[in-house]
Design a protein around this nucleic acid. Structure first.
Lengths: 109, 109
DNA sequence: ATTATGTATGAATACTTGTTCACATATAAT
DNA sequence: ATTATATGTGAACAAGTATTCATACATAAT
């Protein structure tokens, strides 16, 4: 019996399931777009309406609204209506952690 | 002075810089693909060569090799040559954390 | 009711990305 | 040297994605 052999069967058993991999990849797809990252970064600092975000990032309402729909669909943001405006805020604190680790990683080089 | 006003100027100042956002988005782009996630997940369990990974994931060498190049370029994996084979392993522990948080997030629903 | 403002969304376009195919390189064994 | 095995990579194709444009919907004010 060789010493440094790798037990492929055990590794195969210990791998995450297809469905979890799929969901995790979808989660990180959200964080892979600059516009969405900027939106999440802004919402980390304050709740904001579409107009606020588009002027902050100097982008069209339409573009921001499309991305916010994706964030809504992924349940990463929640909404609150005030008069004509819809205020967006972050739904949970995983988002904060994910952005923090990402920033840490790219800054350590 | 209204009470619930938002200080947009301060938020704009506190936003992460364009370059950091760009790098973080590139980092998470890596984790947004199922194949790469599976590769990283496997390397979390053991160092492996291209052949091992392609048989483990039941995918072509070429596809795996292409993705490993991306992981190399992003400096997420390191390589070690043993005879004809090239063994890959993870370069740092951020990867573990990122996968863990992702799994946590998608499992809490 | 009409107008103005804020937000949502379908369609079209341009862009990006992953896989496959074919071929190239590298090492080991014969 | 030649052959076999392991890995790397460019090009092409297919699939997916972000933005823009146009338009629709919702709320508030007149």
């Amino acid at each position: 019996m060789k010493e440094k052999d790798i037990d492929m069967t055990k590794i195969k058993e210990d791998l995450l399931g297809e469905d979890i991999i799929f969901e995790v990849s979808n989660l990180y797809k959200v964080f892979s777009d600059e516009t969405r990252l900027k939106i999440l970064n802004a919402l980390l600092l304050s709740e904001l309406c579409v107009y606020d975000i588009s002027s902050l990032l100097e982008m069209s309402h339409s573009s921001i609204s499309h991305q916010l729909k994706i964030l809504r669909d992924m349940r990463l943001v929640k909404t609150k209506k005030k008069g004509k405006s819809v205020y967006y805020s972050l739904k949970d604190d995983h988002i904060q952690k994910i952005i923090k680790i990402g920033v840490e990683h790219v800054c350590e080089k």
